[in-house]
Design a protein around this nucleic acid. Structure first.
Length: 311
DNA sequence: AATACTAGCAACCGCCAGATG
DNA sequence: ACATCTGGCGGTTGCTAGTAT
C-alpha cells in the first residue's frame, strides 16, 4: 500500500512545546493573513514547525474565545450528555461548547469523566453497564443526523454572518475571550521583561507560565523565530495601538488584547452562538425541556438515565 | 531525600474527506 | 475519473508535576 507522505519534511521540523516567541510569530501571521493556508505558514513565518502543528496550536490555544480548564457543572453535564448522544465525536461535541476545544473536551473526558462514570457504573449498577452507555435503541444515524443538523446550522450561520459587521464589545462588557487575551497578555508582559535566551514556557491551567533560567529544552533552536521576534512584536504593538481607544473602562493590557480579539473575531471558525442566531432552537433542542414533542425520543436519552447518581 | 508511581494535558500521528487541477 | 493537496478529526503518546512510598 502506498504510504501517504508526511504533511511536511520531517528534517528540521521542530517538535514539542511551543515557545512564546513561536506563539507570537504565529499570532502575528494570523493577524495579518487570517487562519488558513497552513501549508504556507512555516515557510512564510520561518517557523520550524509542521503546518499541522501550527494549525493545532492556533485552534487549541491561540485562537480567541478559548476557555481552558475549570469545567463547570453545566459544561460537564453537556459533555456527558453529548457524549452519550454522539459518541466520541469530540469536534461535534465541541461545537456545542463554543469556548472549548475538541482536544480539551477529549482530554477532560478521558481524564475525568470517563473515570467518574466508570466508578458510578461500578457502584451504582451491578449489571456491568457499558462505559459508554449509549442506549442501543438509538441508532447511530439518529446521532449523526442530529450532529449534521447542528453542523449545517453552523455553516449557515457562518455564511449569513459574513456580511455582518465585526462585533464591537460594549464598554463594560466583559470579553468572552478574557481568559485567552489574559493569557497572551501575561505571556507578552513576562516575555518583555525576561532577559534574552532565558525563557521557557509551559502552559498550565489557565495561564501560561514563563520559566526563566537555564536548562531550556528549546535551547538554541529558535534562531529563525528569534530573528522574527522583534518584527512580530512590533507588528502586534502597532496594531494594538491603533485600536487602543476602543474601550476606556479596561486596563491598557486588556484594552490592547480586546482590540486584538475584535480583529481575530472575524476569523473565528465558531460563531458566537448566543447572539442573533435565528436557528437557536435547533441548537438547543437536545437540551430544551420545553422542546417540541418530536425531540422527546432523543431527550429520553437523559443524563440521569445514563449516569444515575452523577448529579 | 530519593525513587516510583500516577494523573493531567499538550502535542503528534495517521486516517479520512472535500477541494482542486 | 483520477491523483494530489489540504485541513479536520480522533486516538495515542510522551512529558511534567504532583503524590505516595
Amino acid at each position: 500500500m502506498m504510504v501517504r507522505p508526511p504533511c511536511c519534511e520531517k528534517i528540521g521540523v521542530k517538535k514539542g512545546p511551543w515557545t512564546p516567541e513561536e506563539d507570537i510569530i504565529l499570532v502575528s501571521y494570523i493577524q495579518e493573513h487570517g487562519p488558513g493556508n497552513w501549508r504556507s505558514v512555516p515557510t512564510t513565518t520561518g517557523l520550524m514547525r509542521c503546518s499541522k502543528s501550527c494549525r493545532l496550536r492556533w485552534t487549541n490555544y491561540l485562537r480567541p474565545g478559548i476557555k481552558r480548564g475549570n469545567f463547570n457543572d453545566h459544561e460537564e453535564k453537556m459533555i456527558i450528555h453529548l457524549q452519550a448522544l454522539l459518541g466520541n465525536r469530540w469536534a461535534a461535541i465541541a461545537s456545542y461548547l463554543p469556548e472549548r476545544t475538541d482536544n480539551d473536551i477529549k482530554n477532560y473526558w478521558n481524564t475525568h469523566l470517563r473515570k467518574k462514570l466508570k466508578k458510578i457504573n461500578q457502584t451504582g449498577d451491578e449489571n456491568e453497564v457499558e462505559e459508554n452507555s449509549i442506549p442501543q435503541v438509538k441508532g447511530q444515524w439518529e446521532r449523526r443526523l442530529q450532529t449534521d443538523i447542528h453542523m449545517a446550522k453552523q455553516a449557515l450561520c457562518e455564511a449569513l454572518s459574513l456580511d455582518k459587521p465585526t462585533p464591537i464589545l460594549a464598554e463594560n462588557q466583559t470579553s468572552p475571550y478574557a481568559s485567552n487575551t489574559e493569557n497572551i497578555a501575561r505571556l507578552l508582559e513576562k516575555w518583555m521583561k525576561k532577559p534574552e535566551n532565558s525563557v521557557e514556557t509551559t502552559n498550565s491551567g489557565n495561564s501560561i507560565m514563563v520559566v526563566t533560567g537555564s536548562g531550556s529544552r528549546e535551547g538554541g533552536q529558535n534562531t529563525i523565530a528569534c530573528k522574527q521576534k522583534d518584527q512580530a512584536f512590533d507588528s502586534l504593538v502597532s496594531f494594538n495601538s491603533l485600536n487602543s481607544d476602543c474601550s476606556q473602562s479596561v486596563s491598557v493590557e486588556e484594552k490592547n488584547f480586546l482590540a486584538m480579539d475584535s480583529c481575530f473575531f472575524q476569523y473565528q471558525s465558531k460563531p458566537n452562538q448566543e447572539t442573533q442566531d435565528p436557528l437557536m432552537f435547533m441548537e438547543n433542542w437536545p437540551f430544551d425541556d420545553e422542546a417540541a414533542q418530536c425531540n422527546e425520543d432523543l431527550m429520553n436519552v437523559s443524563m440521569e438515565e445514563n449516569t444515575p447518581g452523577l448529579f
